[in-house]
Design a protein around this nucleic acid. Structure first.
Length: 429
RNA sequence: GUGAUUGUAGCUCAGUUGGUUAGAGCGCCAGGUUGUGGCCCUGGAGGUCGGGGGUUCGAGUCCCCUCAUUCACCCCA
């Protein structure tokens, strides 16, 4: 065992995998710009109160999963961000961007931190991409957010995803429903588990998505939130669904879908992947008109957004073989040294090739020619350029096509000419 | 935080009822080919058997503790 290991729940991404990340990030940037969303980058830490106010102190995230610390003895507590939305909203309010333009469409890719036990598809440091649409939360706006998310998934080639959607109504709807739930659950109180009892106190809606079979049995007979929605709330929800239908986005209405963050209202949604284990949520989001007020804004900022787990997206793509076409870019030319003493000349040649825009590799470890050639082969180099004493004195180099094994003797200028003739020097494999 | 699981070479894993200097395949390095790869052959480097304690004449194998891993619960992306 090495003396040092990565911190529990944190992992390294080596080149083979980072190529996959770059690819996925590229798709996100492209699709986001299609929808007119611009990238925002906010700090990885914020004052702890931001999350307590924004996410809600009854949530598990705030209650037990935050990495918080005091920067100095008299300082204010700081927390590594466990989610993005609160920070984005804080940034928008701080700069007062909505007074300059009433609607802002922002997206992000960033690292988050949550102190949970790691398991499949869950790390303590993980990444999400997502979008926040600030200033309007009409059905068209909410549908826009969902559509953007689904189009990113589609552009990545993801299959077998399930989109579930629900309406949480406005605060009046939820107040009436909450009372109804309390009276429904009262006679069952003795049969509830501890966490359900606590939820009933603090946030009764969360009982609905309990995984405990005994609780679910009781939940089955509970009143439906849908039946407590006002006419306006129902119309709003139906309109969102209308847009989704128009765009051929298939969804399932799930009356039990609640979501764990306090700031959601009206439309809430979640996408799951059948390729993942227990942690199968790949993305989710909803409308959160109340968040800005919660953060001290003098006026309401209607808003909606989604967040998707990068690791879970990557995991699903891997399982579905979507990275097969991603081949690493090898060198075009491998400069092979006959003897280590010729390294100075070889370095000079390699440098000139690179200055001319040719991806060039050269052994820096003074290994044997056999090892250099094996290396060139493994890296799928197109050409080998040999440096021996003859080459150094004549300035003419043995230049070998590694696919056909044909070899000629050329000056460096002629080599460059040959490489520029074939498309950037790369040979068909 | 709870439960279970696994920890032997860089990687994947063998290791028989506890019994001498702990093995294989792949990978790595070198040689076979004194200036040329992909195949093949030969050799080499690399291990405090996660760590600590205990039982025993003797522990990679048994017991205890500890650390780490993985999966699941809780919850979430």
């Amino acid at each position: 065992m090495p003396q040092y290991q990565a911190v529990k729940g944190a992992r390294d991404i080596f080149p083979e995998e980072s190529a996959q990340w770059k690819y996925v990030e590229g798709v996100i940037h492209t699709v986001a710009s299609l929808y007119g969303f611009s990238e925002i980058r906010t700090p990885v830490f914020e004052y702890t109160e931001l999350f307590q106010r924004g996410i809600g102190s009854t949530t598990d995230i705030v209650g037990k999963e935050m990495f918080s610390f005091l920067p100095d003895p008299n300082g204010r507590s700081i927390t590594l961000r466990p989610e993005m939305t609160a920070g984005v909203m804080r940034a928008a309010l701080q700069k007062n961007i909505l007074s300059a333009a009433p609607v802002h469409k922002l997206y992000y890719i960033g690292e988050l931190f949550r102190k949970e036990r790691p398991q499949a598809g869950r790390q303590r440091q993980f990444s999400q991409f997502g979008a926040e649409l600030l200033g309007v939360s009409t059905p068209a706006a909410v549908a826009e957010v969902i559509t953007l998310m689904m189009q990113v998934f589609e552009s990545l080639g993801l299959r077998n995803l399930r989109l579930r959607i629900n309406s949480l109504g406005d605060s009046d709807d939820r107040f009436r429903y909450r009372e109804a739930l309390k009276t429904y659950f009262a006679p069952f109180h003795d049969r509830l588990d501890d966490s359900s009892k606590e939820r009933l106190e603090k946030n009764p809606l969360r009982i609905l998505d309990s995984k405990n079979p005994a609780i679910q049995e009781i939940v089955a007979g509970a009143p439906r939130l849908y039946d407590y929605l006002s006419v306006a709330s129902v119309e709003d929800f139906e309109k969102v669904l209308y847009y989704l239908q128009e765009r051929g986005i298939t969804y399932e209405i799930d009356h039990r879908l609640v979501r764990g963050l306090d700031y959601y209202c009206h439309t809430a949604f979640e996408v799951t992947s059948s390729e993942l284990g227990a942690q199968d949520a790949i993305g989710g989001g909803g409308r959160y008109d109340g968040l800005a007020r919660e953060l001290g804004s003098s006026s309401e900022v209607p808003a909606s957004g989604f967040a998707a787990g990068m690791e879970r997206v990557l995991l699903t793509m891997e399982k579905q073989g979507l990275f097969a076409a991603l081949t690493p870019q090898g060198p075009v030319v491998y400069v092979v040294l006959q003897q280590a003493e010729l390294a100075d000349h070889g370095m000079q040649v390699a440098w000139r090739l690179r200055k001319a825009g040719i991806r060039t590799e050269i052994d820096l470890a003074a290994r044997s020619m056999k090892a250099q050639m094996r290396d060139a082969n493994r890296m799928r180099a197109s050409w080998a350029l040999f440096i021996g004493s003859a080459e150094v004195t004549t300035g003419l180099y043995a230049f070998k096509n590694l696919v056909t094994s044909e070899q000629t003797t050329l000056s460096l200028e002629a080599v460059l000419e040959t490489l520029h003739e074939t498309a950037s020097g790369e040979l068909q494999k």
